[in-house]
């Protein structure tokens, strides 16, 4: 197995708070990794650092052996890492289709045209095909602001995947989604990921979902990694049981149910 992402001693502090300390993670080609950890454990901070939204205080990030530490999100995207967001980051006043069209236009290798119409038939066909890959094509003409949470999350992921990345980081794909819809959503997403051949990492609070989709689990606690290994093994790790799973199994509450408006 060859690794595509490797972080070495990744650290982030906000003033006195250490949000992530000495994070060493390796992700291999086509792997599906689940990340668990209670609120404030540093999971989002980790994803933010890998994708360039936050500058690490220390440590380095290697993507396919290349040092991408200090890259901007833009550059990280261009190198082949994409992410979704805890709160879907969309263009609320545009329609679902327009969101997808913009994603395609921006991620394509060509420059953004100033005269060629974005809504050409070919572009629309590509975008509609992408939407159907996530089973949201029926919402194509609805403004995003009117979409239900689950559809927004799917669109968020579909837009990230539009570039055909090698690695997809999903920050709580099921947060804000009704419990009975979570499995359906994850099925759709994981299928699409498998089709694309990308490796993926997803943050999840629901252990049932984690054990169903992940082949490997990384557990965060208070900015540290306390377990990293095959799913069964990691979930049965005594520390993980004490700090994360035990409480998680009772309290499956999404950590951020803020509206996606902002």
């Amino acid at each position: 197995m060859s690794s595509i992402l490797e972080t070495k001693g990744l650290t982030k502090s906000f003033g006195a708070i250490t949000a992530a300390a000495n994070i060493n993670v390796t992700i291999n080609e086509k792997e599906i990794v689940g990340v668990i950890g209670s609120n404030g454990a540093g999971k989002t901070t980790f994803i933010n650092m890998v994708t360039g939204y936050l500058k690490p205080t220390g440590g380095s990030i290697l993507f396919r052996g290349r040092d991408i530490t200090g890259f901007s999100p833009r550059q990280v995207t261009r190198t082949g890492i994409c992410r979704s967001f805890q709160v879907a980051q969309l263009f609320p006043e545009l329609t679902t289709l327009e969101n997808m069209l913009v994603a395609h236009a921006m991620l394509s290798k060509k420059r953004l045209g100033m005269q060629a119409p974005m809504k050409s038939q070919t572009n629309i066909d590509t975008a509609m095909a992408a939407l159907s890959g996530y089973e949201i094509e029926s919402y194509a003409d609805a403004p995003v602001a009117t979409l239900p949470q689950g559809i927004r999350k799917l669109l968020d992921i579909a837009m990230a995947m539009a570039s055909g990345p090698d690695l997809l980081l999903l920050d709580e794909p099921t947060s804000g989604v009704a419990i009975e819809e979570k499995f359906g959503l994850m099925d759709t997403v994981m299928e699409a990921v498998k089709r694309s051949g990308a490796a993926s990492l997803f943050v999840e609070h629901d252990m049932e979902i984690v054990s169903r989709y992940a082949t490997r689990v990384i557990a965060f606690y208070d900015g540290h990694i306390i377990a990293d290994g095959p799913t069964e093994e990691a979930l049965n790790n005594p520390e993980v049981r004490e700090y994360i799973v035990g409480s998680e199994l009772h309290l499956q509450k999404p950590e951020d149910d803020q509206n996606a408006e902002n």
Binding site: C82, R83, A103
Partner: peptide
């Protein structure tokens, strides 16, 4: 933020 993450 989304625009940044779309590589632009």
């Amino acid at each position: 933020i989304r625009v940044e993450y779309l590589g632009v």
